[in-house]
Design a binder for these strands. Structure first.
Lengths: 196, 196
DNA sequence: GACGATAGTGAGTCATGACTCATCTTTCAA
DNA sequence: TTGAAAGATGAGTCATGACTCACTATCGTC
């Protein structure tokens, strides 16, 4: 994300600026996780312990702030996907799926944004990377014959987005989450050897 | 829903009041369908061709207006469920499910509300009736042996809510909707005779 | 340590949207 | 036909939240 508006050749950020930037990001992550993208910038400033003007110096608009956070999160998810690449493909896909849905409840903003195409507008490249990671997992599981070959990426993404959303807004508990995902996973399994 | 605040013995509503009430309800249905529950009361008034004060005379708060609309919709859905009771149970359940998801895209407010527990607070009895209708369909399909007996109502409701939500926010086209629901339905089918 | 560039501050602006109420208009029973 | 009572009107209030900017504080360099 762009460092604060600085003219001229880029000098490193001043120490206090760097410190505040981190604090703001942390506070924003909390606030938006709890309240979704409608959380107020003022609340972010309050939690970060800075004045509201400081927030706007670092992130000229609220969307910039949201984008910065989404960027962090997406990178983290992509990394997680990578870490799962050793596992058996079907397990990798289902574990990744489950993990995202589980986190959804704690990350309102993410779900809000994922739902509203807002992300694609803000950080298209990263979304592509993320989608690619899911695609990889899907293909591998299909190659291994443990996920139905008729299934395509769009519907997997669709189910991922909608169950995350549901888990969040509906406040699903662990049990309901498991049962619901079990149905989805059963639906993804080839007809022959469906295992619940 | 309560007629406008009238003291004393309830006289029938005046002709112009009745007319305006209907207009407001129609306008609100449109506006909230398009913009979700964040649509403004002023826009509703504009489309109804009345002053904003009139809207507030009929529905003292925005929530009252939203509740009135949700009531209409829920009643309609319950009626649809009833009309399907002649069909083969599995078909009834899946048709109902599909229909709701299909309408989701045209009814933002509904999805918003269904998602946020807002409805239960506003019109608990009707929600119970609605849930009951789904439960009936589910049980019958299970009795007929065409839906997995391990599946319970909560996860069906969860999937219903989340796919509706997904279809709306994600702007799924007809094809994606079908493919996604196919996976869900496959997941609901007993292992033995899963038919795609 | 001094000084200029960089960063922080927070009261203030502007827009939006729910809701109110004094005043005017329409209905309808007598 | 008429006069209340019921209803409609819309400018105005209040709260919220994004964003600005004149001013002050701090950093880092010489």
């Amino acid at each position: 994300m762009p460092p604060p508006r600085t003219a001229g050749p880029d000098r490193p950020m001043r120490a206090d600026a760097r410190r505040n930037r981190v604090r703001i990001l942390e506070a924003a992550e909390q606030v938006f996780a709890e309240q979704g993208s409608s959380g107020s910038t003022e609340e972010v400033a309050r939690r970060a312990g800075v004045a509201i003007g400081t927030v706007f110096r670092h992130f000229p608009t609220k969307d910039d702030l949201l984008a910065a956070i989404m960027k962090n999160l997406l990178e983290q998810l992509v990394a997680e996907a990578g870490a799962l690449s050793d596992s058996e493909p079907r397990t990798a896909l289902f574990t990744f799926f489950t993990r995202i849905v589980e986190q959804a409840a704690a990350r309102k903003a993410v779900v809000d944004l994922l739902a509203q195409t807002g992300v694609e507008i803000m950080i298209p490249e990263l979304v592509t990377v993320f989608t690619g990671a899911v695609d990889d997992m899907l293909r591998q599981a299909q190659t291994a014959g443990t996920v139905d070959p008729e299934v395509h990426l769009p519907e997997v993404m669709a189910l991922l987005a909608s169950t995350s959303q549901g888990a969040l807004h509906g406040g699903w508990d662990a049990e309901l989450r498991r049962r619901t995902l079990d149905i989805v996973f059963a639906g993804l399994t080839p007809r022959a050897d469906r295992a619940r």
